[in-house]
Amino acid sequence: MTTPLTTLVLGATGTTGSRLVRRLTARGHRVRAASRRPAPVRGAHSVGFDWYDPTTYETALSGADRVYLVPPPASPDPAEVMLPFLEQARASGVRRAVLLSSSAIPAGGPAVGQVHGALPSLFEEWAVLRPSWFMQNFTGDHLHARSIREKGTILSATGEGRVGFVDADDIAAVAEHALTDDRAPGSDLVITGPEALSYGDVAAVLSEVTGHTVTHRQLTYEQMSDHLALTMPAGFAALLAGMDRTIAEGAEDRTTDTVLRLTGRRPRSFRAHAEQVFHHSNE
């Protein structure tokens, strides 16, 4: 009789991690739900984990043979802490690693791109999820969402550039398949929603769905970098503002079939996401 697979989910209380834990446990998978401040999670074993505290690694990895990797937030050089952890994960028996990266960062690129580039040499079974920007950025606790709630404004340096915004539920669905299918999909999986929208388009949809006017205020790269630096390290603020600039240049104006191909269902549209969030909250 084979031993059931155990998945370590890092960032288990985060946007994609929490959704992934619910999916895995609902299907009877064994899950170690890791976070800096562990709390009871139905159907999972909660463990403490901190990227910057290597003493938490061994307990988190105990018994796990696959891992979902969420990089440390706001770190311009996550490889510094992630690569030593991955070496330890491999030594402890982890066979498959699924990394959450970004559509804007290729293998070998800056930040988490360095971790992406290293995965194939560390694990035989691996996958890199490269989702586009999250729809939840406009409806959750992101800077954009807070700005929308407080000022009715989205600030960005994206100009008229378009993005294939994706629902975090769809990212979690792809992650589930990447972790539990007989074979890891490998390579890098660019995950988008069904359509590419400008930030102005997003503001228009939110205005229609909520009944409150939402506008998109266009900033320069320098203005956006300075704005972000008020709430995060300057280096990370510059990185994010630079991503806005690449959006303005058309780098994210695309859609992919990744969600449909791996899950068998179409990704959710931004309008459907907004209607679910705001109509549900008004019930």
Rank of each mutant, 00 (worst) to 15 (best):
S225D: 10
E275G: 08
Q276Y: 14
T258E: 05
S102E: 03
L24M: 08
E160P: 00
E150S: 04
S35I: 05
I171P: 01
V202Y: 02
S147A: 13
T220H: 11
L86M: 08
G152R: 07
L219Y: 14
I148F: 07
L8F: 04
E249H: 14
G242K: 10
E252T: 14
R245C: 07
R23A: 10
P71W: 10
S75F: 05
T7Q: 03
R95L: 02
I191N: 00
L228H: 04
P131F: 07
T192D: 02
P120N: 12
L8Q: 07
G161C: 11
E125P: 09
F270S: 12
S62H: 01
L99N: 09
G14V: 00
T210I: 04
H144L: 07
P194D: 02
A79K: 04
L219H: 13
V205Y: 12
R96L: 09
R42M: 07
P38C: 03
H279M: 10
E249I: 13
V47Y: 07
A79V: 08
I148A: 00
G250D: 10
H216V: 03
K151Q: 12
L143P: 04
L155P: 06
V94G: 02
E252A: 14
P84R: 05
S207E: 11
N137H: 14
E275H: 12
D141E: 15
R66N: 00
V67M: 15
R217L: 10
E58T: 15
T16H: 06
M243Q: 13
Y68V: 03
L239W: 09
M224P: 00
Q223D: 03
A173H: 01
L230Q: 14
A64L: 01
G63D: 12
W126P: 07
D244C: 11
A175K: 02
V9S: 03
H142L: 00
D169N: 14
A111E: 01
V67I: 15
P78A: 01
W126N: 03
P84F: 05
V128C: 10
G63V: 09
A178R: 06
G235I: 04
W126C: 01
A229C: 07
A272Q: 05
R266Y: 02
V98N: 02
V277H: 10
